[in-house]
């Protein structure tokens, strides 16, 4: 019995630390990394946007539609930004200007965005990513041509053999960190999310800031969503984000509103997502009930629940930007 346990753990570890598993976990975390950084920026402005799922789908469908019709990568990304940014703009109008409840507005955006995206996506559901674009993402710009020794081979396979989209996602997280903590504009954004009235009284244009970062955050979610049809799957499926937008909302809490930590956070969630597939391929493990395919696919969501519960216990340590959920009205008495 104990021997079984050790050998099962052994095979699980050998899967998790294999170069091919790490490589695919990284590839699977791209969507969530973009989404987390985007949502994090939005929340730093004091707005909780629950519409991530909707914005991801809007970005994915609009971008993929543009890609299929124009075969232009530039237009694909542009339209992903336009689609998701449009959703975020609606959210901003509702919550910043009209001061509607942020949760309600976000939920509405999620449902509305998914509906609009699916109807647009159905127009391109039978096509695949145009060859010229697919070719760009087949390139592995940092891959070593002839790695020497087992260590370099491992590194090469796990970390260096990715397409450019993956590295851009990491770069975005790094840039967002520097921006938030090392620039004046980042300071203004953080102050707005911590105390909007104080920011306003300090001469910061808070409405402009909120609109700008809500839309920017939405665009990042859209670019993340576009990865799914354009690169990962190469075709469109309805609701293809499959709840990743909701995981992102928990991930932002998990990484404590810190973009550099989002890289690790997204990786953890990405690896949980694909752990199920990998385990299925292993005969030893797939016979153990707990590694049942359906249970495995539950793991990311289970972790989300755990994260939220753990957070509620430690809420006092740092509850995140204080203004989240509070509408700001300057002339309030």
């Amino acid at each position: 019995m104990i021997g079984d346990f050790f050998s099962a753990t052994g095979s699980l570890l050998s899967i998790v630390f294999s170069a091919s598993f790490i490589a695919s976990a990284i590839a699977f975390s791209v969507v969530m990394l973009f989404g987390t950084v985007g949502e994090l920026i939005t929340e730093r402005a004091g707005h909780l946007n629950l519409g991530v799922e909707g914005m991801m789908l809007l970005g994915a469908s609009m971008g993929y539609f543009a890609a299929v019709r124009s075969s232009s990568l530039f237009l694909a990304i542009l339209f992903a930004c336009v689609g998701a940014g449009f959703g975020a703009l609606l959210y901003a109008i509702l919550t910043v200007t009209l001061r509607v409840n942020q949760n309600v507005a976000g939920l509405a955006l999620s449902i509305f965005g998914a509906g609009l995206a699916n109807s647009l996506g159905s127009k391109v559901s039978n096509t695949s990513t145009p060859d010229n674009i697919a070719k760009i993402f087949k390139l592995k710009p940092f891959s070593l041509s002839s790695p020497s020794g087992p260590f370099l081979t491992f590194i090469n396979k796990a970390f260096l053999s990715h397409n450019i989209y993956v590295y851009v996602a990491v770069l975005v997280a790094v840039v967002a960190t520097v921006f938030l903590f090392k620039t004046r504009a980042g300071l203004e954004l953080r102050l707005t999310g911590e105390n909007t009235a104080a920011a306003d009284a300090s001469g910061i244009k808070v409405t402009r800031i909120k609109y700008f970062y809500i839309i920017l955050g939405g665009m990042l979610c859209g670019i993340g969503g576009l990865y799914l049809p354009l690169v990962q799957q190469g075709s469109w499926t309805s609701n293809m984000t499959a709840g990743q937008g909701w995981l992102v909302v928990a991930l932002v809490i998990f990484v404590r509103w810190h973009p550099i930590k989002a890289i690790a956070g997204a990786y953890v969630f990405g690896s949980l997502t694909i752990l199920g597939f990998s385990v299925q391929l292993n005969e030893r493990l797939s016979s153990i009930p707990i590694f049942n395919q359906y249970i495995m696919s539950m793991f990311p969501y289970l972790l989300t629940v755990v994260v939220l519960i753990a957070f509620s216990f430690r809420k006092k340590a740092w509850p995140g930007p204080k203004e989240i959920g509070r509408p700001y009205f300057r002339e309030e008495r």
Binding site: R190, L191, I204
Partner: peptide
């Protein structure tokens, strides 16, 4: 204006509060 209820972000340093928006 120095408001009766101070307009400061409690979690941020005095410096951050002072320079933001300058």
């Amino acid at each position: 204006m120095i408001h009766q209820h101070f307009k400061l972000a409690e979690a941020m340093t005095a410096t951050d509060n002072i320079v933001a928006g300058m």
